[in-house]
């Protein structure tokens, strides 16, 4: 059964279509990575999944039921952490949990259980005002786990954390489906964050879902990539684009062309040399997932500006 399913989900703010006909299919008991650059519409989508805002079009189904019709019953089975955790800084960690525990009527033992999962038991007596960003994030996760959810919706839970914090959070999230059978819907703007833990992913850009499916399927798309080291790379890129090639100029000054073959390499080299560029590197290699992700969103960008 699908934990989340949406049909043509859309949301408009003023005249701007921020989420544009999204069909999510999120299978149970695994991590689903919801990827997209900043401003792609991830948080807006998540707000609709939680009933915080109403879709202009389309429906949200959780565990097979329509959210709009069974909101409270369905939310009982969902835990969420949207953007930065919402904590009361003047209360201790334990008191913060107690506020939500009272609201949802969870048993008293629930607090010790979630503190244990996120390893915050020994800091629970401290005021949240004194917490580090990583501790706040873990407390936010603990709040989301209080009602023993079947589905956990996490919106960029590692945003702003240092590498150690990111690592901690990732390990924690990875454990949830395995140990507790929880479905995790995890949004991020970095593929690297979810690559190692997600079974399925969806890629959203400018409100549209560009790809959805098993990560393995995306991996299968991995083609060869041509890496070019050349003098005056910006001009060289323009020259190649004039010859109808999609070129990516990287920060280190090298150019890449996705989906290239040996014949392409020969072609590109000839073209550049004939135009008077000095080519000092030409490598044909396997491209990374990050490249596919960037490629997908970049293509969508150019399509949008063309239309």
């Amino acid at each position: 059964m699908l934990a989340i399913e949406t049909g043509r989900l859309s949301k408009q703010f003023g005249k701007r279509l921020v989420v544009d006909g999204i069909d999510l299919r999120v299978p149970s008991a695994q991590v689903y990575g919801f990827l997209g650059p900043n401003g792609a519409g991830k948080t807006t989508t998540i707000r609709m999944l939680l009933g915080l805002i109403r879709p202009d079009e389309g429906k949200v189904h959780l565990f097979g039921d329509v959210l709009a019709e069974h909101r409270l019953a369905l939310l009982k089975r969902v835990g969420a952490l949207v953007e930065m955790p919402s904590l009361y800084p003047h209360l201790t960690g334990r008191e913060n949990l107690e506020v939500t525990r009272r609201l949802i009527g969870a048993p008293a033992g629930a607090i010790a259980r979630v503190l244990d999962i996120v390893a915050l038991a020994k800091d629970a007596h401290r005021l949240v005002r004194e917490y580090s960003l990583g501790m706040r994030q873990r407390l936010g996760l603990a709040l989301a786990l209080l009602n023993q959810p079947e589905l956990l919706i996490l919106d960029e839970p590692t945003n702003g954390l240092d590498p150690a914090g990111i690592h901690e959070m990732r390990d924690l999230i990875r454990r949830l489906p395995v140990e507790f059978g929880i479905t995790v819907f995890l949004s991020s703007h970095l593929l690297g964050e979810v690559e190692q833990i997600a079974g399925n992913i969806g890629i959203i850009h400018a409100g549209r879902l560009l790809f959805q499916g098993p990560l393995a399927e995306l991996r299968a798309r991995q083609e060869k990539r041509l890496l070019i080291g050349v003098s005056s790379p910006e001009e060289a890129a323009r020259c190649l684009e004039a010859a109808n090639r999609t070129v990516n100029l990287r920060d280190d000054g090298t150019l890449t062309i996705a989906g290239a073959s040996q014949a392409d390499a020969v072609d590109v080299n000839r073209l550049l040399v004939n135009q008077g560029f000095d080519v000092f590197q030409l490598t044909l290699s396997q491209i990374t997932l990050e490249d596919i992700f960037l490629g997908l969103t970049k293509n969508a960008e150019t399509e949008r500006s063309d239309s």
Binding site: L50, L52, V82, S86, L103
Partner: peptide
């Protein structure tokens, strides 16, 4: 203001309470 400070509304309103 207690609820505005850290946008607690998004947490409160996503809980299974009316």
């Amino acid at each position: 203001g207690i609820e505005h400070g850290e946008k607690q509304w998004k947490h409160l309103l996503a809980l299974p309470i009316p």
